[in-house]
């Protein structure tokens, strides 16, 4: 009886997450092929945007700026074997990307032909999906600019 196989128990729950005004605006922009950032009251441009200044809890300002989807890699980690939920299902780099005009970094994927092309400070640009739904995956990934 000791060799009874262990059953796999899948805990699966669907969630319909209401977004609130700020994330809603950001995701609506992504669906429309646009990247929007908002400003904290101290003028810091956050992308992705938050309802608040993460450092103080103060509400963010109502100022929004549109970014053009190009940016610079601040950090990266190369994944040779993606997990089933990863953004890309081929070898790629997770990256922190400082979009031009933003003061914070966006976490996303960068696709290059070869790991040797990856470097901190490299310039990248967003590659959009044709069919967009209002999700971070509307940007398929970033690619060298």
């Amino acid at each position: 009886m000791s060799d009874t196989p262990v059953p796999i128990d899948t805990v699966e729950m669907p969630y319909v997450r209401t977004l609130g005004p700020v994330i809603s605006r950001f995701f609506t922009g992504l669906r429309d092929g646009e990247i929007w950032a908002n400003k904290t009251r101290t003028g810091k441009v956050q992308c992705p945007p938050f309802e608040y200044d993460p450092y103080t809890g103060e509400s963010a300002s109502d100022d929004w700026v549109q970014l053009d989807g190009t940016g610079t890699v601040s950090s990266w980690a190369w994944v040779e074997e993606p997990l089933r939920n990863h953004l890309l299902q081929e070898p790629f780099a997770w990256c922190l990307i400082r979009l031009d005009g933003a003061d914070t970094d966006l976490v996303h994927a960068v696709r290059v032909a070869d790991k040797g092309q990856m470097a901190t400070g490299m310039r990248v640009e967003a590659r959009w999906r044709d069919e967009r739904i209002g999700h971070l995956r509307d940007i398929e990934c970033f690619e060298p600019a």
């Binding site: 729950m13 938050f50 993460p54 809890g57």
Partner: peptide, 20 residues
């Protein structure tokens, strides 16, 4: 499991002014 986020205080912290 109600919200499907493990220890959601980690991400909600910023909205609660918890940083620092």
């Amino acid at each position: 499991l109600f919200e499907g986020v493990m220890r959601p205080e980690l991400f909600l912290n910023d909205a609660m002014g918890g940083a620092g």
